[in-house]
């Protein structure tokens, strides 16, 4: 829809305009040495010089817990009340292209068959200002799963740092356009810019289609047990993942009033599939690790038309026992 440039020094004013337009801004901030998305009042609070936030931007549309029902009991009657979970108009600033891409996975899961208004309305009221990657690390593999350090997919407005003073601002959607038109004086027309020159170099490391093709035949392979012997069965990988969407539903009450909450859950947990009878279809960690890989790279491509992984590398960085997904995928592709 158009290419503009914006001066680094104008971002403060842009934040001011967005805020005064009634939107909250989530952006990467540093807290106790870690970088996380948090609400900011002004641009100087935004962290710089990091590869990835610990948690992804998915929390803007799929919070770690959220109300899906509100009720109260009066004797034998139950009243279902209006739930308080309403979307807050939000701009998420500094979303990496991998995170922006993951929004399409979340959208696909929550829109199909039974549309989920909580996720949908949050996606609808969220504007994504992406920030291309100028740096990457050994855990990044976006280009192997169909993304790129400067990919525009999922962003409404994508910023790419093109020199010390300026960002290229690519307007991708109408939401992005409305950000620009809220402060047209801050943007200039971009001439011919070779954007790629300013992006991180992330080499393609495996063939996603080949992986999808190979996985079904590897279901009974001993490689799952070999890879996951050191896996301790926590949910860190799922919780930091921008495209993991599995959840639990829990009721909480205060006297006669209560709420029903949707909370993040993980296929890595032993309890995830445990039946009341004690039977567990995925009773050991290797089966749960296999499910994680199968779901993302075999089942979801067929079901959603997209892999459930965007190559952000968060799971590998966060894993307490160095389960490195990129390395494991490469090993899977070498398995015979």
């Amino acid at each position: 829809m158009g290419k503009k440039t914006i001066n680094v020094d104008s971002l403060g004013e842009l934040f001011h305009k967005i805020k005064s337009g009634g939107k909250r801004i989530l952006a990467p901030v540093e807290k106790d040495g870690v970088i996380l998305f948090g609400e900011v009042a002004s641009y100087p609070e935004v962290a710089t010089g990091y590869i990835q936030t610990v948690f992804s931007a998915k929390e803007a549309v799929l919070p770690r817990f959220e109300e899906i029902l509100r009720f109260s009991s009066e004797g034998r009657d139950v009243v279902i009340e209006e739930e308080s979970n309403k979307p807050v108009p939000t701009v998420v600033f500094g979303v990496r292209p991998c995170d922006a891409k993951s929004l399409s996975v979340i959208k696909a899961v929550f829109e199909r068959d039974y549309p989920d208004i909580f996720v949908q309305s949050k996606i609808d009221s969220t504007t994504v200002i992406g920030l291309s990657c100028v740096n990457s690390d050994e855990y990044c593999f976006c280009t192997s799963v169909g993304g790129a350090p400067g990919d525009t997919a999922g962003s409404d407005l994508l910023l790419t740092r093109i020199n010390d003073a300026n960002y290229l601002a690519e307007i991708i959607t109408e939401k992005g356009e409305s950000i620009v038109s809220s402060a047209p004086e801050l943007f200039s027309e971009a001439g011919n810019v070779d954007k790629d020159r300013h992006l991180a170099q992330v080499n393609r490391q495996f063939d996603l289609d080949e992986l999808e093709k190979r996985l079904p035949a590897l279901f009974e392979s001993p490689l799952w047990a070999g890879q996951s012997l050191r896996c301790i069965g926590c949910g860190a990988c799922s919780f930091v993942c921008p495209s993991c969407t599995c959840f639990d539903i829990q009721d909480e009450t205060d006297g006669a009033r209560g709420i029903r909450l949707r909370c993040w859950d993980s296929c890595g947990f032993a309890q995830f599939t445990l039946h009341t009878s004690g039977h567990n279809p995925r009773g050991v960690q290797s089966k749960r690790w296999r499910q994680r890989i199968m779901h993302k790279f075999s089942y979801q491509p067929g079901e959603l038309g997209t892999a459930g992984c965007v190559g952000c590398g968060r799971c590998s960085r966060a894993c307490p026992v160095d389960m490195n997904i990129l390395q494991h995928i490469k090993d899977i592709l070498e398995a015979r």
Binding site: I232, G233, S266
Partner: peptide, 9 residues
């Protein structure tokens, strides 16, 4: 986030 990495480790 209750990922339980503390417990599992």
């Amino acid at each position: 986030s209750k990922c339980y990495a503390c417990r599992q480790s």
